[in-house]
Structures are given as C-alpha cells and as structure tokens.
Design a protein around this nucleic acid. Sequence first.
DNA 1: CCGGGAATTACACGATCGGATAATTGCCTA
DNA 2: TAGGCAATTATCCGATCGTGTAATTCCCGG
Lengths: 239, 239
Amino acid sequence: MTSSDRPDKKAVPPGDMRQSGSERRPYIRDTEENRRESLVAAVQALVAEGGRQAATVRAIAARAGVTPGLIRHYFGSKEDLLRAAYVALMDGMTNKGEEALDSVGAGPAERLAAFVAAALRPPVLDPKAVGLWAGYLHQVQSDPGLLAQHESSYLHYRDRLQQLIADLDRPVADGQLRQEAIACNAVLDGLWLEGSVLPGHFAENEVIQIGLRSVGAILGITLAAFTAPAGRQHRPGEK
Amino acid sequence: MTSSDRPDKKAVPPGDMRQSGSERRPYIRDTEENRRESLVAAVQALVAEGGRQAATVRAIAARAGVTPGLIRHYFGSKEDLLRAAYVALMDGMTNKGEEALDSVGAGPAERLAAFVAAALRPPVLDPKAVGLWAGYLHQVQSDPGLLAQHESSYLHYRDRLQQLIADLDRPVADGQLRQEAIACNAVLDGLWLEGSVLPGHFAENEVIQIGLRSVGAILGITLAAFTAPAGRQHRPGEK
DNA sequence: CCGGGAATTACACGATCGGATAATTGCCTA
DNA sequence: TAGGCAATTATCCGATCGTGTAATTCCCGG
C-alpha cells in the first residue's frame, strides 16, 4: 500500500532518487556489524510503529538504506532477522534498569526507587516500546527459542528487583521475597502498559509517583517521592 | 502463462474436502446476526493465536465455515470486520468483572476481592486473551476510533474498580481514590500480563493470592485470601 | 594502480493477499 | 407449489509478499 517502496520492475522510479537513465544505484561498503545493526534498528522501528505486518523486507531495506537482498545476505531469512531484532530488544530493555543504578547513591531504598522510576519514564515507558513488545508477542508464544529468551530476560529482571528488595533492612518471612518481587514487577508492568498506551491521562511524573507509592505499600516501607532528576541519567549511546 | 491455469482456486484439493466433480459447495442461509458473530469469533480466534497477520480473509472465512466473499458482504471490508471484532472484545472483557460481582455477597471487601480474583483467572487470564489484545495494539494506537473505544472501556473498568474501593469504609484524602484505582488496576494488568505470557511460572492460585495481597497493601486493608470458589461462578452463555 | 573477490544491487518467480464481479442457490412468500 | 430475490459461492484480478539467482561495483592487498 505504501507507494514509497520501489516496485519490482524498474517501471518508473518515482523520479526523486534516481533521475535519468536506469543507472545502478551506487553504494558504499560497510562493516558487517554496522549493516546488521542498521537492519535490526530498522526492524524495531517498523514493528514498533506498525506491528509485524509493517516489517516487510522491502520496508526494512528502505528504512536501513539498502536493498532487500542484503537481508538475506546477512541474515538467513527475514525470520532470522526478526529473531535477532527481538534478542537485541530484550537485552536493551534489561540493561536500562542496570544503567539507572549506576548514577545513584548506595542507600537501598534510594536504589530501589531509582530502579522503579527508571522503568516508568522514557525511553522505557514509551508507546513505541509497547508497540514493539506487542508486535513480538505472538512470535514469543510460538517460537520456543524466543520463549526461552523471554523467560530468561524476565527472570533476570525480576531477580534484580528481588535483590534490591532483599537489600532493604526488613524482617522477611520465608518465600516472601519472591511474591513481593512478582507483585512489584506487576505494578511496574501495569503502569508501563497504561502509561504507554494512554499517555495524556496522567500528569507529569504521576505514573512514577504512583509506582513508588505502590511498591512502597507492597513492601511496607516509604519510598522517596522524589520527582524527575531532570537529565542526570542521560548516558552516551542512548537515544 | 505462468503454468498456473488455476490462480486462486485449489488446483489440487488435498483430497479431503471436495472429492470429484467441481460441484458448487452447498450452504444454508443464516441470519445476519449469526453470520456476523461467526466472523467476529473467527477473527478473534485467529488474531489471538497468530496475530493480525494470521487473520487473512481466507483464513477467517475458513474458520467461520463460509467463503471469503461473505466478509465483504456483511462488513464493508476486512478492516471493518477487524474493527467490529475489537469492539466486541472490549465489551466482553469489561463485562466479565460485572458478572463476577453478581454471585457474591454484599460486603465491600468481599466484592472487591471477587472483582480482583475474576481478573486473574480464566477466561480473563489466558494466553489467548493477551495475544488478542496485543494483536490489536497497533490498530488501537493508529485508529482514532478504536483509540476512543479503548479509552472508554479502560476508564469504565477503572471507574468500576474505583467505586469498589470507595465503598470500603476507610478515611480517604482528596484525590486519593483515583491514584489508588490506577495503582490497583496496574497490579491487575501486570499480573494478567505475566500470568498469561508465562504460565507455569506460578503455582495454582498464586497469581490471585499475590493480587489480593498487593491490592490490600495498596489500600491499607486485608483482603480475604480465599482460594478458588471452584465452579460457582460459571454462567450460562460463557465459553 | 590494478586485478580479484566479497559486498551489494538488480531482476525474476511463485505464492498469496484483499477486493471486485458474475453466477448460482437456498429459502421466504404469495 | 412456483417465482423471485437476497444470501452465498465461484472466479478473476492487480498488488505485494518473501526469496532465489545473476549481474555489477566497490575496495583492499599486492
């Protein structure tokens, strides 16, 4: 439907890119790493915006600035590329929490609060991120390899959360930590979902405040209701 | 002349359905309502299992036991059918909570607990339901009509939850109910998500117990940790 | 500065998609 | 019970999908 991609035959190139005689498109060689990253980024952008159906080989190639043949050259097939893009997504998501812990003090409650807040603001809380996650859901449910990857990432994130909870100096019963981690993780997931799908229904930092208050209530403590640190945790390499 | 004398039609039927002479498939007339419901149900099943990409006109028709032409006959286009299926989905989801309240006592805490538990067990907590929801996410984000429908359903559900919270006899501050409703709704959403995507990671009724405990902690009360009522709330007309 | 080979593009093909239109048939009614 | 018409099916069509395969071009090592 998109008239932006080139038809199969060189019937009439739109006239904007290549003007005159049917000359072959010039190109520059690039490293394998760069090309793979470009293609993965293109897939993530397309899936986030329009779902899996929007990630056609021609659209991916156009977004990455190459021709469709490269997809098959660097990845065995379109399916392999989608798999690689999902793995890259999960790695990036889980790393965001770790990054938030680097630039904060050593107090257990403070660190937990920073972890919670990081999950409830961009770039994690973002309509694009939810779209990307949703676009991959069916593939995760059907592909055993991706399901294992998802389980691993989920448990890793939850274990990190549980460790932060355990670092608080509270008397805990047996098996209590696990259920608290599940509950707090659910709060983060739910707020992430609602805040991303329906932005505009929440005031600035309201989602973060609710998250901190709820996690604190579940754990029986009071988390610092500190508002946005405003640009402190921006790190090179992030968007 | 591409050796495809039979473009679309089954050049060689697998031999299971229609056997020999090309006789026209017999059919029975049905009411408009039944046909629409069949098509909507087929769409929901296909989207839940394989995402939007699996809901092709041919697959939908096959699932509904008709031929693709009927889709265009009863709905203007495939897109219109998908829209109708989404509206039906949201209506069904929000009604599930109301149904759970019909078969329970009048105590405010008891009613809230029933509402929470209903959201955390089948048919609401179900991998298919999450798949269906995810399959529609991009359409919701892009289609203004569907976004309005989603907002309406979401707010209706949250208001119902807030009303149940308000019915508890507690001293509440100004604006507290809204944030509590958002937080409790987030807990339900998050547990619904995790429990559906990763079944098997939680023991029987564990999700419900965590949900009751978390909602209780957020509201500062203690919800009855009652386990499964085991078949009491099954209602005629439910699947 | 110039060959050689890998990187990249170009092109073609079969499958399938959503949609349009014509043909047929089941069923209500008179 | 026969006629008529809406319901349903059958068939075709252009577009686009993913993927092979051949042609071309950039770039590095000598």
